[in-house]
């Protein structure tokens, strides 16, 4: 489904701030893989995500989604393959537009937009049903502007939008990091449910080791722009947080994971 082939990316090349973000990443995701991505700050997690999404172009290497080489494809064009949820709840929705309008925008992802109505009555009914599943009471507030929603509500809505049209690949960039623990848990459970129901191929960055172990069928660890650990299936199921911390120390040569990794 996703093939990442020998990707390199350096920021601010040739200046004192030069930063090698990705250093030869190779990754192949099979259909239906749910991969969690962990790594310390600056390990290259977000850069990797942004290269897949098209926000950045790599210096070298290629990205292939569903057999199509998208390396040079602009962000808005490859959006038809991707569902995305960002870390910042503000990022994923149009705040000044209504809940149903946001959903209608997402329903037209990857389709040509003409002068047909932006949203139909039939769609509104469908969205109402979908929102009911979220169980946040949003189904009765469809014409509310998204700016009035809480962070958790927004992330749930963004998640719904990202999967409204089944994406080839779902990209979750620490999408629960800005939420309080209870809400984060709810959103994660919702994520897991949606991913399972639609058997979506998913790439999820997380700072939380527990979540990284609990969710998905495969776990990769990034360090200094390289994949240093790739555990899947049975082996992953048996993994515990102390194991992972130990591995983290071995692989990165750093004794401790950041507090954020430990405490969350």
């Amino acid at each position: 489904m996703l093939i990442i082939n020998d990707i390199y990316k350096t920021f601010n090349k040739g200046t004192v701030n030069e930063k090698k973000a990705l250093n030869g990443i190779d990754l192949v995701l099979n259909d239906g893989d749910f991969v969690t991505v962990i790594g310390g700050n600056g390990a290259g997690k977000s850069t990797l995500m942004n290269i897949v999404a098209g926000t950045y172009t790599p210096d070298k290497g290629e990205v292939i989604i569903d057999g199509v080489n998208v390396t040079e494809m602009p962000e808005h064009k490859r959006a038809k393959y991707l569902g995305r949820v960002f870390q910042d709840p503000i990022m994923g929705t149009a705040a000044g537009m209504q809940i149903d309008e946001n959903l209608a925008l997402a329903a037209r992802r990857g389709k040509r937009r003409f002068l047909k109505p932006g949203i139909t009555k039939k769609e509104r009914l469908e969205y109402k049903e979908l929102l009911r599943i979220l169980d946040l009471g949003l189904e009765n507030r469809m014409s509310t502007k998204v700016e009035l929603l809480s962070g958790g509500q927004r992330q749930s809505l963004t998640l719904l939008m990202a999967t409204l049209q089944k994406p080839k690949l779902l990209l979750l960039d620490e999408h629960t990091a800005a939420l309080d623990p209870k809400t984060a848990k709810k959103v994660l459970e919702l994520t897991d449910q949606i991913v399972k129901d639609n058997s979506l191929t998913t790439l999820m960055i997380t700072h939380n080791m527990q979540d990284a172990i609990k969710y998905g069928n495969r776990l990769i660890m990034l360090s200094d722009g390289k994949i240093v650990l790739d555990i899947r299936g049975e082996e992953k199921a048996k993994l515990t947080v102390p194991d992972l911390l130990k591995l983290f120390g071995q692989k990165t040569g750093e004794e401790m994971a950041s507090d954020k990794l430990l405490l969350s």
């Binding site: 959006a79 038809k80 991707l82 149009a94 000044g96 937009r113 003409f114 002068l115 109505p117 949203i119």
Partner: peptide, 24 residues
């Protein structure tokens, strides 16, 4: 109110979101 017009509004509201929804 059309599909295209909604896309224009989204562009003004949140360009990053618009891009992620396939809007030029």
């Amino acid at each position: 109110g059309t599909e295209y017009g909604s896309g224009v509004r989204a562009t003004g509201c949140n360009p990053r979101m618009a891009k992620a929804q396939g809007i030029n």
